[in-house]
Design a protein around this nucleic acid. Structure first.
Lengths: 194, 194
DNA sequence: TGTACATCAGTGAACGCGCGTTCACTGATGTAC
DNA sequence: TGTACATCAGTGAACGCGCGTTCACTGATGTAC
């Protein structure tokens, strides 16, 4: 990789770092080009040599978040291969919960309505990759189920967990501590798998 | 009520009607004062004699949505008193699903991050009122549970349903038909209640 | 009933700001010979 | 190795637009006498 290519990659990462920091602090609704430029130490024009536009930048921030989330689930899976599937799924749901709690703004940016509609295919694929990790685990529980049936059940499980995390941390009904929510997930997980 | 008071109320309703129509068509992210003024046949200044600001208007649109949603659940409850609790909760969850599917933009506005933070107390109470309807139904299933325990279980149920509706209709993992989602809710409801 | 005044909703031009995006220009890096 | 040219990232002022909000003014409705 030439000097220029390296510099480009470094710059691109700096920009993404800055954007991510801003989203983490204030939410994706406050992401704007000027602040990113200032925080990453370049001019506004430079942002546009590395990203098509603000939406493109936001999408790449989200892509990073999904990658970090996937890595967090990887960790759990590595350290938790002994127990039964239900226990492993609980642990993964717990990790999801912890990630959302510890990275609230970047996590909720993943589901924000102000993202470009429709989402570009590559980014939907990022979401799907994360989902397939859960689906695959669940698949081993129901080896005889047809694929589409198993897929649907996995989605329902994923969505239920998502709802518990999402509503638990939004302020619509008051926030609940992550530990409380994780306990609830542990309580209902066996029922969701039967 | 004097002529002036009546006219005020009519105007206020016209404004809310227009705002609701705009949100229903384009989402709350596209709500703006000028369009509301045009659609309700008054000037921009008039909006401010009836609402404090754009956020206030948006909050009242959401309050209306919650009221309509509550009315939809009322209907279900009235026509569905025969069966068991699980059946009734399924029917209510189905009505929630249908409402969200048939009023997607106004429904999702309820959970949007761009609402003023923190939410005003009166509007959080609107959310709570809706939630308590589910909680009350569930309460009769577990009469011996302590109140806080029953409350938590109701929230988990509510949140799980919410997640299934929410992720099912967002495009992150592809949209699913409302009927499919309702079938999934029927499938897991008994498990969630045990 | 009539008159004078007060109150208050409605008006829309204007203000001001935030912000995405562009573009002519600069200077550094790469390339051809 | 040196020279001339091409390529390309960086710069930041400027453009243009959307949009929330204000305000001096108008005219209708209510009120006091």
């Amino acid at each position: 990789m030439g000097v220029r290519e390296e510099a480009n990659e470094r710059r691109r990462n700096d920009i993404l770092d800055a954007a991510e920091r801003i989203v983490a602090e204030k939410g994706i609704g406050h992401l704007n080009i000027r602040d990113v430029a200032r925080a990453s130490g370049c001019s506004v024009g430079t942002i546009y040599t590395h990203f098509a536009d603000l939406d493109g930048l936001a999408l790449h921030v989200n892509a990073r978040t999904l990658a970090r989330l996937a890595a967090a689930l990887d960790d759990v899976e590595r350290h938790d291969q002994g127990g039964d599937i239900a226990g492993q799924l609980c642990a993964m749901a717990g990790a999801y919960m912890d990630f959302a709690a510890g990275n609230y703004h970047v996590w909720s940016a993943l589901f924000e309505h102000r993202m470009p509609q429709p989402l570009p295919e590559w980014h939907r694929e990022d979401h799907f990759r994360l989902f397939r990790r859960i689906a695959g685990k669940l698949r081993t529980l129901h080896p005889n189920l047809p694929d589409d049936e198993a897929f649907l059940r996995a989605r329902t499980l994923y969505a239920a967990i998502h709802g518990i995390v999402s509503l638990g941390m939004a302020d619509r009904l008051g926030r609940l501590p992550a530990e409380t929510l994780k306990a609830e997930i542990r309580r209902i997980m066996p029922n969701l798998l039967s």
